[in-house]
């Protein structure tokens, strides 16, 4: 089995690392959320890819359906997707509120604004 036999894992890891990199390296609050979504998406792939059997069908217990794909990962990831969407929505909502409060969505500008208004609360 070659290193590319499991190409879905390579894609998973690539997405994972790229997503994390964006979260860490970008100062723009929206871009950070984009990175976070990419990161989460990689996990969807991690779960679903091994669940797929080539030539497998939907899990129906009847004659003629001998090889079927494990449905559980799909169900799990459906939940995870919902969670991901909720997180993204909440993150965007907070970003909007931050824009209203600070007039910016750039992290360094926001931190500078807090420093100017006098550090300790």
């Amino acid at each position: 089995m070659s290193a590319f036999g499991h190409y879905s894992y390579w894609i998973t890891v690539l997405l994972m690392v790229a997503g994390l990199y964006i979260v860490i390296a970008r100062g723009n609050l929206i871009k950070k959320l984009v990175g976070l979504s990419i990161f989460q998406t990689s996990v969807y792939l991690l779960y679903i890819a091994p669940g797929k059997l080539i030539g497998g069908t939907a899990p129906i217990i009847a004659d003629g359906f001998r090889l079927y794909t494990n449905p559980l990962p799909h169900v799990l990831i459906l939940t995870a997707i919902v969670v991901g969407v909720a997180t993204l929505a909440l993150g965007l909502a907070i970003a909007v509120r931050i824009r209203e409060a600070y007039g910016s969505i750039e992290e360094d500008e926001i931190l500078a604004a807090d420093r100017d208004s006098g550090g300790g609360a």
Binding site: V23, L36, Q40, T87, G91, I94, I98, A101
Partner: peptide, 24 residues
């Protein structure tokens, strides 16, 4: 305080990364 928003945002990012690590 408006800094609560930024704190929540940072917690959201780190918390989600944490939860995603867990799920991985």
């Amino acid at each position: 305080d408006r800094r609560a928003l930024l704190a929540a945002y940072q917690y959201l990012i780190l918390g989600t990364i944490g939860a995603t690590f867990y799920v991985i």
